[in-house]
Amino acid sequence: MKRSQPAIEVYNLHRFFGTTRAVDDVSFQVHPGEVFGFIGPNGAGKTTTMRILATLDQPSFGNAYIAGFSVVEEPEQARLRLGFMPDYFNTYPYVNVWEYLDFFARAYGLRGARRHQAVQEVMEFTGLISLAEKPTRALSKGMKQRLCLARALIHDPDVLILDEPAAGLDPRARVELRQMIRHLANQGKAVLISSHILTELGEICDSVGIIEQGRLKAAGPLELIRQRINQYSVLQLEVLSDPQQALGLLQQHELVGEVHLRNQHVLWAQFRGDKVQRAQLLSYLVNQGVKVAEFSAQEGSLEEVFLSLTQGQVQ
């Protein structure tokens, strides 16, 4: 897939609070249509980085670009191209859902029919149409979260920054949120999302950035990070021929670690390689006369990657 210019570019970002290095030399990129998961323990620097990207804070050093506009030199331009959803869902209590969205549409400079259309569209997308007249103070947490997403989308931004959007939501709301985010990414929006629920991020994200103590430990597609940290995937093979032959061949292979014969026909092997190398291994076994009935790989989860890269330290 040919990717265009990055929608989010972060270069050597630093943010110091006194002697504390909240963000320490963080660099990454997010492309249009990509969902980038930002993972890290509490106090790792995720929210600070996101706030700098949302132009709510300034870096001590380094720079970041939203759709090509610097958050330091051109924050006004960057703001018009980003939608930010913070980790709190505060709204104005005495206005209803429609009035709330209408206010933000006006604030983003939408006028006349375009504004009405924008409000209508985001309410439809987030399923708030039936609640248009309801005061925001009477909304449930899940509905407030939808309202905040609708607000972030009102001006059709290129970039979405979502800080812990699924926190405190019930399972159904989480699934719906995941679907909405995937849908937005498919529309070409770049999504930067932070969450503690790693299984969810693993399902939704195209790439991840793992941050601890302000430093980015790794960033990129999960598979590549896994390779970088030499994390094995587990291969399961069912062979119809002599399993000892398969065992011997596997043990000799340079990308295979430990191999276990689980029962008479099934073998488990630790494998360090990508999909292409996996296919080459299968081809090699077949060429050597091993009758392979089943060949599957179980990759390490995002949680395993996260735990292997971080030490649980906070500052």
């Binding site: 132009t55 709510l56 703001r79 930010f84 505060n90």
Partner: peptide
């Protein structure tokens, strides 16, 4: 206090 100003500050206002 309500944290709504931050949201207003990143609009075009």
């Amino acid at each position: 206090e309500d944290g709504t100003y931050e949201l207003v500050s990143i609009t075009g206002l």
